[in-house]
């Protein structure tokens, strides 16, 4: 009899150890975060200081975030989805994974950004697509600095371009949608086939080209300008160019997850995230995207939409999952397999 008790104690011990990892709950908000790691990490302490609510953050790429939210839709872990390109936010709203919440500062948000997306998600920032270039690499190759999308097909850039793969990156889809809106679908695909020969590698993450660019492994990276500016400020020898034909942009999203367990805290987080104080957290983390709140005092270096020729990006049409899938599939079948060497 004595023996049984001690055995049971062993089992109890094992069960206790099991349970000790599921920690006690307090006043929290669970955020899935799709901006750069630095920004994600800076949010928690700042929000806790402002409101006393604990922020627990998981940072994953935009597509991965959508995948997780969709997988957990019956029983969501997360309350708020912070950042990342707008199309997946739009898709999440259409699929009833997220819901629209009118943040307190909604009146102060940029009217153009609001107009572009309607009441699907809350605009958080605007990021403009552009070229990052490494002048020294181009000079060594004797290649000119690219000014326009069509310049990218120049054979002088063979093996010098990096852009992300649309199958895994929202940035790359923004580029495809931009080109289709600029030139029409056929010509856009011809253009992509044209510079496909010059692409050294299609990266998995949309931010990734800047790494190879900064290290001088490639000469041109196609991605959002604010990520390039951040890298330039860190000391990498790169420059930012806006394509002459015009360029597209993303409206970074902020969404409330439908069925969120900490809904009130989530809404408080969203209110704070688009307030000037919340948006300045990004600046301190070295982020240079244009914040959506017009009252937020800007810092130097932010690419201002007024300085570029922006297309009238149709977020609703190109955020449609069906069109998105069709364009990405077409790219995967007609552009990606083309020989490059």
């Amino acid at each position: 009899m004595l023996m049984r008790k001690t055995n049971l104690r062993w089992w109890l011990f094992v069960v206790m150890v099991f349970m000790s990892s599921g920690l006690a709950q307090q006043k929290v908000v669970n955020v899935i975060c799709s901006v750069t790691q630095n920004w994600c990490e800076a949010l928690g302490p700042a929000f806790k200081q402002a409101t006393g609510i604990e922020v627990r953050i998981v940072s994953v790429s935009t597509n991965e975030a959508l995948a997780r939210l969709r997988a957990e839709r019956a029983n969501p872990t997360f309350d708020v989805w912070f950042g990342g390109t707008g199309d997946p936010h739009y898709e999440a709203f259409k699929d009833a994974i997220t819901e629209w919440y009118r943040v307190k500062a909604y009146g102060d948000l940029s009217p153009t950004m609001k107009a572009a997306i309607g009441t699907t998600y809350i605009p958080l920032y605007q990021g403009i697509l552009g070229f990052g270039i490494n002048p020294k690499v181009l000079q060594d190759r004797g290649a000119p600095i690219p000014r326009c999308w069509k310049d990218l097909t120049n054979p002088a850039y063979r093996g010098l371009i990096q852009v992300s793969n649309p199958n895994t990156s929202g940035t790359s889809y923004t580029m495809i949608a931009t080109l289709v809106q600029l030139f029409g679908e056929e010509e856009a695909f011809n253009l992509m086939r044209g510079f496909h020969r010059n692409v050294a590698e299609y990266t998995r993450s949309g931010v990734a080209p800047r790494i190879a660019l900064g290290r001088g492994e490639i000469g041109i990276g196609i991605q959002f300008m604010h990520d390039l500016v951040e890298f330039k400020k860190q000391g990498f020898p790169i420059e930012v160019v806006a394509p002459c034909e015009g360029t597209g942009y993303e409206i970074g999203g902020l969404s409330l997850v439908r069925g969120a367990k900490n809904k009130a805290n989530g809404q408080a987080f969203m209110d704070w995230a688009v307030s000037p104080a919340g948006q300045q957290v990004g600046f301190r983390a070295g982020i240079f995207s244009l914040p959506s709140n017009t009252k937020t005092p800007l810092i130097e270096g932010i690419p201002d939409p007024k300085d570029f020729k922006l297309i009238n990006y149709d977020a609703k049409k190109y955020g449609d999952p069906e069109l998105r899938t069709r364009l990405i599939t077409r790219w995967t079948r007609e552009v990606f397999p083309l020989p490059r060497r």
Binding site: V60, S61, N63, E64, A67, R68, R70, N167, T168, R204
Partner: peptide
């Protein structure tokens, strides 16, 4: 990538 990029379990 199938799970996280294309969300196709």
């Amino acid at each position: 990538l199938a799970l996280t990029g294309r969300y196709d379990p």
